[in-house]
Amino acid sequence: MGRGRAKAKQTKVARELKYSSHNTDFEALQRELSGEGGGVRRSDERHDDPLDDDYDDYRR
């Protein structure tokens, strides 16, 4: 139980994404996809070690 509120929020977000119009910068998208963005990429610290599953805190 308690899924109703989460599902309603997901539905609201999905509708906003589907029906809202966004101003898309296609030139910036092209630069990002081609790797010419010049931005600094960060590695996500949670995915550095594929064997670390973050369940150690919960194991007894």
Rank of each mutant, 00 (worst) to 15 (best):
R5D: 05
K12R: 15
E16H: 11
K12C: 06
G39S: 09
D25M: 01
E16C: 05
A28E: 11
S43V: 04
L33T: 10
L29M: 11
T11P: 00
K9L: 13
A28G: 03
F26S: 04
R3D: 02
D44R: 00
R15K: 14
D49L: 00
K18R: 15
E32Y: 10
R15P: 01
F26Q: 03
R31H: 12
K18V: 15
L51T: 13
D44E: 07
Y19E: 12
N23K: 07
E36H: 14
E36K: 11
F26W: 05
Y55Q: 13
S34V: 03
S34E: 15
R60M: 06
D57K: 02
R31Y: 01
R46H: 12
E36P: 04
R42W: 08
E36T: 11
R42V: 08
P50M: 04
L33Y: 10
L51G: 13
A6C: 11
G38M: 14
H22R: 09
A8M: 05
R3Y: 02
Y58W: 15
A28M: 04
R60P: 15
D44I: 00
D48S: 06
E32K: 07
S43E: 12
D57R: 06
D57A: 06
R5Y: 03
E32Q: 13
N23S: 05
E36F: 08
E27H: 04
D57Y: 02
A8G: 03
F26K: 08
E32G: 00
S21I: 09
G38Q: 10
D57M: 04
R42Q: 12
Y55L: 15
S43R: 11
V40H: 14
E45L: 05
R60A: 10
G35N: 01
D49N: 13
R15L: 14
D49V: 01
R60G: 10
A14C: 11
G37N: 01
A14T: 15
D49R: 01
D44Y: 00
F26C: 04
T24A: 12
Y19S: 02
Q10W: 01
H47R: 02
M1Y: 14
S21T: 14
R59A: 06
N23M: 09
M1C: 06
D54C: 06
T24K: 06
A14K: 13
H47V: 04
M1D: 07
G38T: 12
M1H: 11
E16T: 11
D56G: 10
D54A: 09
